[in-house]
Write a protein that binds this DNA or RNA. Structure first.
Length: 356
DNA sequence: GGGCCCGCAGGG
DNA sequence: CCCTGCGGGCCC
């Protein structure tokens, strides 16, 4: 079986799994917009069509604030919920993303928060608080007003480059549920910025959590192309099984690498999601631009709200038949609707910019 | 677009 | 300290 055959087979299997869990459609029929007489193969067909149409290129370099401000156009298609707040459009959501992304005033004690389930974690204080204060003091001209922090570091060979620096974190990411002050739909240009806002702390890892408490958040970034994303439900693949060091002769010290061994639930992050399937505590979800899905943002990363891990199991992965840990997620009810990409509108916008 | 090589959080 | 992990900037 070729890679592509295996991928499509896994997508079919994952879709069938979601179907068996009753996740093939939103749980509340009233929340479903439009005609939803989808055939079981509908989601797969949609995924395939979408991937054929989608451009992989990241639309704009993130060096310009003006470009940071244009994560792409959205349709106002409602996916699994009714519009909340009456007349709230996708554009207003994006606007609020920008205007509310300014870091809140520094607070050094996180204290207890309502909605926190863990209550036992002791967040470490960010050591760069003082250094960060005073930066971006004049934000009036900055369209993206989210967390910043760039510093030049050596590249090991005399060259210098911009380094990602975490901003001032005012909330504890090791808690369950929404982060106070962070609305569903908030958008960031990078993982580091999402980490600063405490929605998803790891800057590389897809899963945040531990085996004892469960998972607080996950990032969907398209690292496993056989996962399926229905928006209100999706499958997710665990971590591990990759050789990140390279060979002894050629140590790459990579952050990601092809899978070379089986994943297991002994992996702390995989165990965290397995635990979440037992506790049914909510997991924050962010979707990234590399995710092959109609629900992925065109650029950057977006907070899409709370999901429940409905099931954890082992399955065959895409690489050499190696096993992976898999999970089925379902979106909780009563949240703002998801945004669906409008590829046609994005194409028109690109052409309009080209014509300028 | 591929290769390189870093920064970062979190856990052991 | 060490290691892992669905990043990202910048080189060619």
């Amino acid at each position: 079986m070729t890679y592509e055959e295996q991928r499509l087979q896994n997508i079919r299997d994952n879709e069938a799994l979601l179907l068996s869990l009753g996740l093939s459609a939103p749980s509340d029929p009233k929340r479903s917009i439009g005609k939803t007489n989808k055939k079981p193969s509908g989601a797969l067909r949609k995924t395939v069509i979408f991937e054929r149409k989608r451009k992989r290129k990241r639309e704009a370099s993130l060096s310009s604030d003006a470009e940071l401000n244009t994560p792409g156009r959205w349709s106002s298609t409602l996916v699994d919920g009714t519009s909340q707040g009456g007349g709230d459009t996708a554009s207003s959501l994006r606007r609020s993303t920008r205007t509310s992304a300014r870091p809140t005033p520094c607070r050094t004690d996180f204290g207890s928060r309502t909605g926190s389930v863990s209550g036992t974690s002791t967040p470490t204080r960010n050591a760069r608080v003082e250094k960060q204060e005073g930066e971006e003091s004049d934000e009036s001209g900055s369209e993206y007003e989210g967390p910043r922090g760039r510093k030049m570091v050596g590249n090991g060979d005399g060259r210098m480059r911009n380094a990602q620096r975490l901003g001032v974190r005012t909330q504890d990411p090791k808690t369950f549920g929404h982060i106070p002050g962070v609305e569903v739909g908030r958008w960031w240009p990078t993982r580091m910025d999402a980490s600063t806002d405490a929605v998803h702390a790891p800057t590389v890892a897809g899963i945040s959590g531990n085996a004892m408490d469960g998972a607080w958040s996950v990032a969907l970034s398209g690292g496993y192309p056989d996962d399926i994303d229905l928006g209100y439900a999706f499958t997710y693949t665990g971590s591990g099984g990759r050789d990140l060091k390279g060979t002894k002769q050629n140590p790459k010290n990579l952050r990601t690498a092809p899978q070379t061994s089986h994943q297991t639930f002994d992996n702390a992050l995989n165990a965290a999601l397995k635990k979440s399937a037992e506790t049914r505590y909510p997991v924050r979800v962010i979707r990234g631009f590399k995710l092959q899905s109609p629900y992925a943002p065109p650029t950057g990363y977006r907070y899409d709200g709370l999901y429940i891990v409905e099931k954890a199991w082992m399955g065959k992965g895409l690489t050499k038949g190696l096993m992976v840990c898999r999970y089925a997620f379902k979106r909780m009810d009563g949240q703002p609707p998801l945004l669906e990409r409008d590829l046609e509108a994005e194409r028109e916008e690109r052409e309009a910019e080209r014509g300028l």
